[in-house]
Amino acid sequence: MNEISVRVADWHRDYPDLRRIREAVFVVEQAVPPEQEWDGDDEHAVHFLACEGEFAVGTARLTPDGHIGRVAVLKDWRGLSIGEALLQAAIAQAARQGLGELKLTAQVQARAFYERQGFEVVSDEFVEAGIAHVDMLRRARLAV
């Protein structure tokens, strides 16, 4: 296996890879309706791609209002800390943009993953696209 790298993606140029990953994870595996997966936030978000060599295996996005979402890693590449690398890239980008709070809607089964990255649950459980979720928040840590 080659080393995994994470880079900022270009929504238009990298769209085929972004779509392939999100379709495989959310639409096919998790049965999220396509009309819920694709929204108006994509055009304005900063997207990230995790790649093994030149092959894209994971993605995430950061919207201008500080919402991290669409974190997805292809099945055969899970368990390799790729999700963590994507999340760290989004957190670093948010810091560069001066965003003081980051929000996300986490699937309940991924709650501990996000808690390890400093996110706190700020809602009761709710169902979205047939999957239990919670809203989470991470406040920027000030340097001392």
Score class of each variant (00 low, 15 high):
52 E>L: 13
42 D>P: 08
67 H>C: 02
104 L>D: 01
74 L>M: 15
139 R>T: 05
3 E>W: 09
134 V>D: 04
64 P>E: 06
142 L>T: 14
24 A>H: 08
2 N>R: 09
29 E>P: 15
73 V>S: 07
76 D>Q: 15
106 A>L: 07
96 R>L: 15
126 F>T: 14
132 A>I: 03
83 G>L: 04
65 D>R: 02
19 R>P: 11
64 P>K: 04
25 V>D: 08
83 G>Y: 01
140 A>Y: 00
42 D>G: 12
7 R>M: 07
27 V>N: 12
73 V>K: 07
27 V>M: 08
99 L>Y: 03
25 V>R: 05
2 N>V: 09
77 W>A: 12
55 F>M: 14
23 E>N: 12
89 A>G: 11
125 E>R: 07
57 V>C: 13
42 D>C: 10
14 D>H: 08
44 H>N: 12
2 N>C: 06
113 F>Y: 06
62 L>G: 04
28 V>H: 11
120 E>P: 00
50 A>E: 06
112 A>D: 13
90 A>W: 00
23 E>R: 11
76 D>T: 15
49 L>H: 07
18 L>G: 12
6 V>N: 00
79 G>H: 06
105 T>V: 12
54 E>Q: 13
8 V>E: 05
96 R>K: 12
3 E>Y: 13
130 G>A: 05
96 R>D: 14
62 L>A: 03
100 G>V: 00
16 P>T: 10
72 A>S: 11
97 Q>G: 08
132 A>E: 04
141 R>Y: 00
50 A>H: 08
16 P>Y: 02
45 A>S: 14
57 V>M: 14
69 G>W: 06
47 H>P: 15
90 A>G: 07
134 V>A: 03
81 S>L: 10
104 L>F: 00
1 M>V: 15
45 A>Y: 00
143 A>G: 07
4 I>W: 12
6 V>H: 10
134 V>N: 03
117 Q>I: 00
